[in-house]
Design a protein around this nucleic acid. Sequence first.
DNA 1: TTGACAAACTAACAGTTGTTAGGTATGCTC
DNA 2: GAGCATACCTAACAACTGTTAGTTTGTCAA
Lengths: 206, 206
Amino acid sequence: MSPTDKNTKEIILDTALDLFQTNGYSTVSIRDICKIVGIKESSVYYHFKNKEDILNTILLRAGAWVTEKKNRFRETLEASVRVPREAFIAVGVSYIEKCLLEEKIFKVIRMLTIEKQRNEAAADLYNELLFTLPTEHQTQVFSIMMKKGFVREDSPEVIASEYQALIIFVFQKYFSGSKPISSDARSSAAQELSLLLKRFYDRYFQ
Amino acid sequence: MSPTDKNTKEIILDTALDLFQTNGYSTVSIRDICKIVGIKESSVYYHFKNKEDILNTILLRAGAWVTEKKNRFRETLEASVRVPREAFIAVGVSYIEKCLLEEKIFKVIRMLTIEKQRNEAAADLYNELLFTLPTEHQTQVFSIMMKKGFVREDSPEVIASEYQALIIFVFQKYFSGSKPISSDARSSAAQELSLLLKRFYDRYFQ
DNA sequence: TTGACAAACTAACAGTTGTTAGGTATGCTC
DNA sequence: GAGCATACCTAACAACTGTTAGTTTGTCAA
């Protein structure tokens, strides 16, 4: 009755993402979203041009977030220093736990997993998020570490791919299902990734 | 008019899989399927109990195919012999090209990629198909090769995980999108995987 | 008090959805 | 040729879909 919070639009977006990530965009109806938000169907059209506009807004924001992340990475790059093995492992594990499993990002990844099958923009974003961006970043990290003599001479790109392959492997193996992520899965994943990264470290660091 | 081919049921299943793999089960209507098959909606209910029965039949068959593959692997295991590096690489590349990219399997994987997000049976099948089954198989392969002295002493399970991580990484990086698989992507993927497997071979084989 | 705006509402539209009841043409068996 | 199973059909249902037109409400500036 009262003019609601000026962030109804945000609530719609959050709810939509919630539903999209498990059911997929086209399965979710506007009425499904509205039932949860607590408004009538027609009210959505005050905030969005149409249903697709909701999806596009989510994709656009995720895209913006990705490029922002990209630039952030670039800045903090020169900080790369020699790290002990435990610290190297901790970075990898927390990349999964703090980044990929962070609530919002995780939902976006899950939504993209569905939408990429038929939406090219979603497919591009998915690839950037899980492959291009992290591999590029790791390439530079290893490249710097090589120059400083912490990592033995090799191709930084290839090492970065091997690194990212391990991350993706563990992430997907433990968190790609339909069940909500349990603390059991979390610790199993951390354990497996630790083991793999330990070997990775011993192979390339000196 | 004439009593059609007794394999209308199969055509329905094929068509359904075709549509499910890009659009997802719940987005595809029975009428969508029928329009392509060339029958009326009601005819579907002669062959299937309801819409879900179509999905379940596909899942069931894929599941049967997986366990059959599992047993087939077990038989051919003892054949493992010393392989030159080129042959080892060729096996990995053709695993992607002949197995994962094989038309039907590829469609199933794409469908499962969507359905796993909310269907537990699909999630289980997906995991078995891309993680459990191949890793188990590779574990045994490496284990035998170790006993025969072709591969240096190490944990077969972990080596198998590292191997499978590379396969999954390349497969997803090049073939997870919305575009049909091009021969460009095929050769890029083969090239990247070759490079990664070459290094893998040099690391563990002796 | 008035007017303007934001943000919701009611009510309806035309089309689509899964599903069912009942009918029809074909070919096989007795 | 009668009976019957197979494999399709027509027609309809109730529910749900995205979307629109027009209306109401609360808030604030003039």
